[in-house]
Computed example of a mutant assay.
Amino acid sequence: MAVVGVMFGSLVSAGTAGAHGAALMPGSRTYLCYKDGRASTGQIIPQNAACKAAFDRSGATPFYNWFAVLRSDGAGRTVGFIPDGKLCSGNATVYDFNGFDLPRADFPVTHLTAGASIQVRYNKWAAHPGRFDLYITNSSYNPSQPLRWSNLNSQPFSSVVDPPHSGNTGSEEAAYYWTARLPSGLSGRHIIYSVWTRSDSTETFYGCSDVVFDGGNGQVTY
């Protein structure tokens, strides 16, 4: 498995309908699997085993639309709205992201240090005002089991409204950004769960970012 830095800059060439954004740092499952699988020809040919399993379940379309894990009727709802086992797909209805709900411990992972401050970057494929909330899994989380709401701490460890942003919409490098302090006392593999709630509509975006707390500084292992 190769360890690489988070990279931005390529332009998605397909499937832009319904596209809005997803976490770049720490990278969401959909984004990092897109990065893992996109070949020089533009085809999706996953190299990571978990990304390949997601591809076999849901096909290439959700990879090209890594920025579209959303519910148009979400209105910021979480528990009781998105079913257990469907958190990473957001139970989305526009594209089939169900492959990203697979309970696996080998999705691409971002290496982090518990208690450290990081610059969160969240892609703005389309710009919207709203609130970002980041949650972290608790000690009950087991990567081999479907992700449930009870596996997440009930309160976000980072929240921000209308953070600054840079870059031109419709590209990977376009992003909202803010500084977040990671929870302390964590080790091993976890999921950072993001909820982006638009303030100008009921549209809400959901996403899982696989991380491991091992003293890392944002490196990604595919």
Rank of each mutant, 00 (worst) to 15 (best):
A175R: 08
W196T: 00
N142L: 09
A39K: 01
N168I: 05
G37M: 06
L134W: 15
I191D: 00
Q219P: 00
L147D: 03
R121E: 15
Y122G: 09
F157C: 01
E173F: 12
C51E: 10
L102Q: 14
V120D: 07
Q43I: 04
R189M: 14
P103S: 13
W178A: 05
D101E: 07
N65C: 10
R38F: 12
I44N: 04
D73Y: 10
F132E: 00
H20I: 06
P103G: 14
N123R: 01
P143G: 11
G42C: 12
G5C: 06
N138W: 14
L152V: 05
S199G: 10
A127L: 09
T204P: 00
Y222K: 08
F81M: 08
Y141Q: 08
S72P: 00
G99C: 05
A174V: 04
T30R: 00
Q145D: 09
N91G: 13
L134C: 06
L87Q: 12
D162W: 12
L102Y: 09
Y31S: 07
Y141E: 06
V12G: 07
D84T: 06
T202G: 06
S187P: 03
R77I: 04
G207P: 04
P46W: 09
R148Y: 09
H190A: 04
A75L: 07
I45H: 06
V109E: 05
N138Y: 11
V12I: 06
L182R: 02
D36M: 06
